[in-house]
Design a protein around this nucleic acid. Structure first.
Length: 729
DNA sequence: GCGATCAGCT
DNA sequence: CACAGCTGATCGC
């Protein structure tokens, strides 16, 4: 059960009570207990951030000009900051909620006033929802606007804190500290030294020999544990704890066990300890510290760590027979699933699909050389790849045209027009700089990314203008903003002798998008639809609501100046969220150089760029890759790194998946472990189910092809028919 | 040694 | 589950 004496449990969480329907307080509803870590894994943070911002420009040109639109290069440090205090001065208050002095409240109020005079900018950001976000209620966030005395406010906070604590207890973090584990053996004072695992007297052995001995025992224990019938998840946790102590003893440093227990340092955490950490947990002597650091280095460098499985084990229902299915079966399974065409589930579409894909199917067989992955100079290669070419899913094919959309995984020589809807890996996968299958058609922003990140020469890229019909190989093509990530487009194909096809790529429908009126005027036969959230359970709020939620939460937590805010993002995507946060709160956002590199390629107004900084000292809001927020373990590591500067981490993980079945319309879910708070906020860049319905109704297509089938065939089928029926109604 | 692909894992 | 993507292993050149 959750231990009350967690290392950092002294932190308090400050929040605000909101009674609005739209803005429930994000107290944990179904706090998910963190899973025990499974494996050691090294990970590098911030390998290469990136991002960008959607454009609002219509480039008529067909390509190369894009380069010239580049941002004039300006070191981000040079942006003018005069008007933006990097942080509030809290007069040395020390971290906790006590810091909510009236002074800081005033300060924030002041800023609230200021922002009223801010103006929205152009471009993607001209979609600024700032004005919508800042409602009078926002001003209440800090002082409640109700004339409450500070004390009264604190009472409210205390109520919240209690609720949070309760919620936390329910989470049951699972003490990893001391458990029975291997049945710890005391190498008691008597001078007798026993192996803690097998109990054998190892007093006569040298330190090294003892280490060797106990390592061997450790391996045995691990193997035995693998064979045990208990589910591995259950057995691993205690193991890990014992493992740390065991390891410590093997270094002859058992006198520090207490410190490790006190700090609940499990096996994974152990890997990340720095000498500084060791000092801070009470290992004051230099010698032992060095010894541990050295051992840790070896541990990290080792291919596998002792006691942790070298190969992933497969769980099986039987619990014993795991060997067989670990080898082949999963592969087969995934293959079948991967090869299964989404549209197999949609009888209505089969004919159309066959038309398109049969051609390519035959081509496949004839092809035989070249390669599925675009090896250099196709003709030169006559070595045969044994790998079977995958069938092209129907959502990649545009009936009535020779075009492919987001189909770089399925490169074929029968096509020379390859459209890319946006720069997300699952859409450009398979595209490499040796691409030699014709031209790539995409938006200007996507083009820049494709050129910069993948290295596709500009000669192979054709930039498609937005909101403007152009002719490609005799077929009318129109791109519209998809409202997904920067540079994302939905594409309308109008073949002269065939019916119109609209490919949405990934998109978030927004009824006020001007382009939608254009779509109404078209008669669209086939709609290739982003069905990511095509299920009624995904009925998440508008982005504005979520952004407001995040802003509120940040405002609430900034009582504590030692709070670090993390906002998750993808390569590109979620920019609107953190940019709005920056603008509304008038706080700079830290991004890493990789991310900036991408930003620079984009048509960002300078006014917006100045909210970003490369100097992390200058900001308490950091944009980080989404995956770094996935586990508390990682967050904890980050927290250790920042221990001096920040006492609390508040992370926002913006994703539509936050919206599971049980969860009802809450703009955010909160969970906490010690000094780390994570909000999962349903900020989605895909259409919600409701939006999908609206969109389908608007388009009224004769046929729908789902581009995602993630809820099982039946579900997808049901949803599509539901969509269709609603659209007819 | 490098690039591309794939499996595994968030 | 899987939004999107990191990492490491492997294969081919």
């Amino acid at each position: 059960m959750a231990s009350k004496s967690k290392p950092f449990s002294s932190t308090r969480f400050n929040s605000i009570v909101e009674d609005d329907d739209d803005f429930q307080i994000p107290l944990t509803q179904t706090a998910t207990a963190p899973k025990p870590s499974k494996k050691l894994k090294r990970s590098k943070h911030f390998s290469s951030g990136k991002e960008n911002i959607p454009p609002n420009f219509f480039s008529n040109q067909d390509s190369i000009l894009v380069q010239t639109q580049g941002f004039k290069s300006m070191p981000i440090e040079d942006f003018s900051l005069d008007s933006i205090p990097a942080s509030f001065d809290y007069g040395g208050l020390d971290g906790d909620n006590v810091a909510c002095s009236s002074a800081c409240v005033d300060e924030v109020k002041e800023k609230e006033k200021e922002k009223g005079s801010l103006k929205s900018q152009g471009g993607y950001l001209c979609n600024s929802i700032e004005s919508k976000l800042i409602k009078p209620r926002a001003d209440c966030s800090l002082d409640s606007g109700n004339g409450n005395s500070p004390n009264e406010d604190f009472e409210e906070l205390d109520v919240l804190l209690k609720l949070c604590d309760q919620a936390e207890e329910g989470e049951s973090v699972g003490v990893s500290g001391m458990e029975e584990g291997y049945g710890i053996v005391e190498d008691e004072n008597g001078g007798l030294v026993q192996c803690p695992l097998c109990g054998v007297d190892i007093s006569d052995l040298s330190d090294e020999e003892r280490q060797v001995h106990s390592n061997e025992c450790l391996d045995k224990v691990e193997i035995e544990a693998q064979d045990a019938s208990i589910p591995e998840e259950d057995q691993r946790e205690p193991q890990v704890s014992g493992q740390v102590l065991q390891w410590l003893r093997s270094l002859g440093l058992e006198k520090y066990e207490d410190a490790f227990v006190r700090e609940e340092i499990d096996w994974d955490t152990l890997q990340w300890l720095t000498e500084e950490d060791l000092f801070s947990i009470g290992i004051a002597a230099l010698g032992p510290r060095k010894k541990i650091v050295h051992a840790l280095t070896q541990l990290r460098e080792g291919t596998t760590s002792p006691g942790i499985e070298a190969q992933p084990r497969k769980r099986s229902a039987s619990g014993v027979e795991t060997v067989n299915d670990a080898s082949e079966e999963p592969v087969d399974n995934s293959k079948t699933a991967a090869n299964k065409l989404i549209t197999d589930y949609f009888p209505g579409f089969t004919t159309a699909r066959k038309q398109v894909c049969t051609t390519s199917g035959e081509q496949q067989r004839v092809e035989k050389r070249g390669s599925g992955s675009g090896h250099k100079g196709g003709a030169a290669k006559n070595h045969v790849t044994t790998r079977k070419l995958r069938d092209i899913p129907s959502w990649c094919c545009i009936p009535g045209t020779p075009f492919r959309v987001d189909a770089f995984k399925y490169l074929r020589r029968d096509c020379s027009h390859w459209f890319l809807t946006h720069f997300h890996m699952d859409h450009y996968q398979g595209l490499t700089k040796s691409f030699c299958h014709g031209k790539i058609y995409c938006s200007s922003i996507t083009a820049k990314l494709v050129n910069m990140k993948i290295g596709i020469p500009w000669d192979n890229i054709k930039v498609l203008p937005l909101n403007q019909k152009i002719n490609v190989a005799g077929i009318d093509v129109t791109c519209l903003d998809a409202n997904h990530c920067p540079g994302s487009v939905i594409i309308l194909f109008e073949p002269p002798n065939s019916k119109a096809v609209l490919h949405t790529g990934d998109f978030r429908f927004s009824e006020n998008a001007a382009s939608m009126s254009f779509l109404q005027t078209c008669s669209i036969h086939t709609l290739i639809l982003d069905t990511t959230y095509c299920n009624p359970q995904y009925d998440f709020p508008k982005q504005e609501a979520v952004i407001q939620f995040v802003i509120d939460a940040i405002q609430a937590e900034t009582f504590n100046p030692k709070t670090l805010f993390l906002i998750g993002s993808y390569t590109i995507g979620k920019e609107r969220l953190y940019l709005e946060v920056a603008r509304v709160l008038r706080k700079k956002i830290y991004i890493n150089p990789g991310k900036l590199h991408i930003l620079k390629c984009l048509d960002f107004p300078e006014e917006d760029m100045r909210w970003f900084t490369l100097n992390e000292q200058e900001s308490q809001i950091h944009v980080v890759p989404m995956w770094t927020l996935a586990s508390f373990k990682r967050l904890k590591h980050m927290s250790n790194q920042y221990a001096r500067r920040f006492s609390l981490i508040v992370a926002f993980s913006p994703t539509g998946w936050t919206f599971g079945k049980g969860k009802k319309k809450s703009p955010g879910r909160r969970s906490q472990q010690g000094t780390i708070i994570r909000y999962e906020v349903p900020y989605s860049e895909h259409s919600s189910f409701t939006e999908l319905k609206e969109f389908v109704k608007l388009i009224s297509p004769a046929d729908i092809v789902p581009s995602v089938n993630n809820h099982g065939p039946d579900s997808a089928k049901a949803m599509i028919s539901l969509l269709s029926s609603e659209s007819q109604a």
